[in-house]
Design a binder for these strands. Structure first.
Length: 569
DNA sequence: GCCGTTTTCGGCCCGACTGTTTTCAGTCG
């Protein structure tokens, strides 16, 4: 069972208790506990197995610890089962309507006996709700529209998509006369894999101008709310964006506040309290006196901390780095010297070897490996041994004729469902760079998956395991891998591992990448480009590595090819 | 329900916006 699943039990429990009108602090305790579990990077199942004292986790006391053990061991939680019987699912669904929270749902269910979304909508349409004290026409309208658009909300978006929209709007707001500073904040600035909504921060002498410009922006379809300092809009792709306008002297504090994460900020706020200070989005205050706030650095410094790169602000690694006095210099896009995973027209790419090499050269790369698919991937016109050897001859010819970049003979070789490799060893050994990957049979049981990975890792000609879990973000989970065993084997046999930079893969993820670093495994960041434009996703791989706290040294392809070879078997 | 060398009881991060209000509750991030 995944940690997020266990957290979901507590969140559901909190929802149900909230509708019932239970003690709000008790509810918050469950939510805090759930948040802790979601951000706990070690598997709880394992912690329970190993009898780890769960109350050492923040926000987990005797009661929640006991409940976690029960969930792990029995797959259910008695209290939750009981509550579910008392509150129908239709009532819980009402919480998903924007602007509707537990108090209103409580009224709907306990006073009006409404227990499905459908009935709620009918009641709103019939004007039944406006008869209750505290409710009016607007609330009814919000409910009708909210229920209609329920399927559209709660969506998450790829970082790549969200960031493109946010950057364009941010750049346009920066051009306004009254705008001094503008920055994208929130999970987008932290470079999370997916983004739920966007946060944009602006300092301006005239908040009206910025808000008007946003309201009239070509990417905005609707203004959802507007006040003096805050405006919420919906963009053409459905994502919602919050604009906040703050005074210039509060810029740093506001950027910190709106970048989050919530967990990171809570630590900062507690730290402020310990020093008899108060931290909010307007600054760090001693009583009413502003003591810091213009820049993020200033706020951190006043709290006796060094500045934390946004990618690390998850209350996971960063405060450990602070304590050790070693905030790492995270890897940057410019550090990358080579790209070792890409396709050409020989399989399912859209460009020739020459075109890929030219595009790579323009990006400042010194070497690339052409790694087309092997024959198992028939859909992509994968190569058999014979075609591959000819393809490699062609690569050698192009390499001879091309100046300024080295083109290596590579292959993305499938690890077949039965655990063998898609190509023979005496073919693989002729190449410069062999990637082994899982594409098929991802749903096999852990034991079988591990057997396949072990074969590949132990093969003397396999240099790297590509996109190890095979997950596709927002689409499908990856294979069930014992990550610890996998990484240990990779370390033992000198097989490198990949962070695949495509925004729908980002595989390894930050937790696995940090674990790989722990074991001293060099990580390779590759684009898996299928066209020259495909190189543009490299930044997302870099972000993922940064979120894992990785430096230039941890990434193999920040080295020259000659240096990199020394890391390989 | 959690937490703590100020506390084992009495607190719990904090501010903005909306809608329904004549001073505030509910919701959200």
């Amino acid at each position: 069972m995944r940690n997020s699943e266990i957290a979901a039990y507590f969140n559901e429990l909190a929802d149900l208790l909230e509708i019932q009108g239970a003690n709000p602090f008790r509810i918050r305790a469950y939510r805090n506990g759930a948040r802790t579990l979601e951000s706990t990077k070690v598997e709880l199942t394992r912690m329970v197995e190993e009898d780890f004292d769960l109350t050492e986790l923040p926000g987990i006391g005797d009661d929640l610890a006991e409940k976690i053990v029960a969930i792990v061991q029995t797959g259910e939680l008695k209290q939750l089962t009981e509550l579910r019987e008392k509150v129908p699912t239709g009532v819980v669904d009402m919480l998903r309507i924007p602007g509707i929270g537990p108090k209103k749902v409580h009224t709907f269910y306990y006073e009006l006996k409404i227990d499905t979304l459908e009935h709620l909508k009918q009641a709103a349409e019939a004007g039944e709700l406006a008869k209750i004290k505290g409710f009016g026409k607007k609330t009814e309208q919000a409910i009708i529209e909210g229920i209609d658009s329920l399927d559209l909300t709660n969506l998450r978006f790829y970082l790549a998509e969200a960031k493109t929209y946010a950057d364009e709007i941010c750049d346009d707001l920066r051009k306004l006369k009254s705008v001094k500073q503008a920055e994208v904040a929130g999970s987008c600035r932290r470079r999370k894999e997916t983004v739920g909504d966007l946060d944009l921060l602006v300092t301006s002498s005239d908040s009206g101008e910025a808000m008007d410009a946003l309201a009239n922006h070509s990417l905005v379809t609707k203004v959802l709310a507007r006040g003096d300092t805050k405006q919420r809009v919906r963009l053409t792709n459905g994502i919602e964006l919050d604009l906040r306008v703050v005074p210039d002297e509060s810029y740093g504090a506001a950027l910190l506040y709106f970048t989050g994460s919530k967990e990171h900020n809570i630590v900062l706020r507690r730290r402020a309290q310990d020093r008899d200070l108060k931290l909010n989005e307007y600054g760090l205050f001693q009583g009413d006196k502003l003591v810091a706030g213009k820049t993020e650095e200033e706020v951190y410094k006043t709290l006796d901390l060094v500045w934390v790169p946004p990618e690390l602000r998850e209350n996971w690694l960063e405060f450990g780095f602070e304590e050790a006095g070693q905030m790492p210099e995270l890897v940057e896009l410019e550090d990358i010297k080579g790209d070792l995973h890409m396709h050409t027209t020989a399989s399912d790419g859209t460009a020739s070897i020459e075109e890929m090499a030219e595009a790579a050269k323009k990006q400042g790369l010194k070497y690339i490996a052409i790694t087309d698919h092997s024959k198992r991937v028939t859909m992509a016109n994968g190569l058999d041994g014979k075609r591959l050897l000819k393809h490699w001859e062609e690569i050698d010819r192009v390499n001879e004729a091309t100046k300024g970049i080295d083109i290596l003979k590579g292959i993305e070789c499938d690890i077949l469902e039965d655990g063998t490799l898609d190509l023979e060893d005496d073919v693989l050994k002729e190449g410069d760079w062999v990637i082994a990957v899982l594409h098929y049979g991802l749903k096999q049981p852990r034991k079988q998956i591990m057997k396949r990975l072990m074969t590949a890792i132990q093969n003397p000609y396999v240099h790297m395991i590509g996109h190890p879990t095979g997950r596709l973000i927002l689409k499908r989970p990856g294979a069930d891998i014992d990550m610890d065993e996998f990484l240990q084997a990779a370390a033992d046999h000198g097989t490198l591992v990949e962070i695949n930079a495509h925004f729908s893969r980002l595989d390894l993820n930050e937790v696995h990448a940090a674990a790989a670093k722990e074991k001293g495994i060099p990580i390779v960041i590759n684009t898996d480009a299928h066209s020259p434009e495909g190189f543009n996703v490299r930044q997302y791989g870099i972000y993922q590595a940064r979120r894992a706290g990785l430096t230039k040294d941890d990434i193999a392809n920040t080295r020259t090819w000659a240096q990199m070879k020394k890391l390989m078997k």
